[in-house]
């Protein structure tokens, strides 16, 4: 077995650019997921039955079907309905965003339910409404609780975002495939791709651990 080190070195810059795009779509998707997740998570425990039911359906559907199928639904099936093509980047962040929204909703729900019930009672007894108490008292405290699981979700999505390579969106995995198509260097390129993913996920988990520690001492 001969490892073509030159190929690895030469391909590296191209792959790093792909990694940048991977981080970009992950960050945008988690950002989107955070907004969706916050509202769906709160809806999941709201006092309105209909909201609770809708949130449950959302969460069940997105967690109960593969992300790959969701990507296909948005990129291949949605155009049939819309009658026009969907941009791959838009399809990628939409699919990843609404998917992670479901997971983040559950993270939020758990984070909120971990807050002592006395906090809600204290807020309500001061005349604040349920939404006011959520906004000013419960959610700010929940944010602190959810940073570790949110970091895990970020890492999971960073890896899962490799799935959007199937719709031709040129993130890290897709770039690897394209270089291999040109050079036949499967071994070298997939090793490089794996290492780059590993470096990214390890960096993020360290970052989350640091953030968690800093918030703890506050």
């Amino acid at each position: 077995m001969n490892l073509n080190v030159d190929l690895m070195v030469n391909s590296f810059p191209l792959l790093v650019v792909g990694a940048g795009i991977t981080i970009q779509i992950t960050a945008i998707s988690v950002g989107l997921g955070l907004i969706i997740g916050m509202f769906v998570g709160i809806a999941r425990i709201s006092q309105v039955k209909l909201l609770r039911a809708l949130a449950a359906v959302y969460i069940d559907f997105l967690r109960g079907t593969p992300l790959l199928v969701q990507i296909f639904l948005i990129y291949f099936a949605l155009p049939v309905v819309l009658g026009q093509r969907v941009d791959p980047f838009l399809a990628a962040i939409t699919a990843c965003g609404i998917n992670s929204g479901a997971y983040i909703a559950e993270i939020f729900r758990a984070g909120i339910q971990a807050i002592d019930a006395g906090q809600m009672e204290a807020g309500r007894s001061l005349g604040m409404t349920w939404p006011q108490t959520m906004r000013h008292i419960i959610v700010p405290q929940a944010f602190k609780n959810i940073i570790p699981p949110l970091g895990n979700e970020f890492i999971a999505l960073l890896k899962d975002s490799s799935l959007v390579s199937v719709i031709g969106f040129e993130e890290l995995t897709r770039r690897g495939q394209l270089i291999i198509a040109r050079t036949y260097g499967s071994l070298e390129i997939w090793i490089c791709v794996a290492i780059i993913y590993l470096v990214m996920t390890l960096t993020i988990s360290r970052l989350v651990a640091y953030l968690e520690k800093r918030l703890d001492t506050k």
């Binding site: 006395g118 906090q119 009672e121 204290a122 309500r124 007894s125 005349g127 000013h136």
Partner: peptide
């Protein structure tokens, strides 16, 4: 909510808001 504005309550376990200063707890 309107009615509760006129009814203050003090709990056994205090239930202060731990993420806010004392001053902001009172002002909120």
């Amino acid at each position: 909510n309107k009615a509760r504005e006129e009814i203050g309550m003090v709990f056994q376990r205090f239930n202060l808001f731990p993420h806010m200063t004392v001053l902001h707890n009172i002002m909120l």
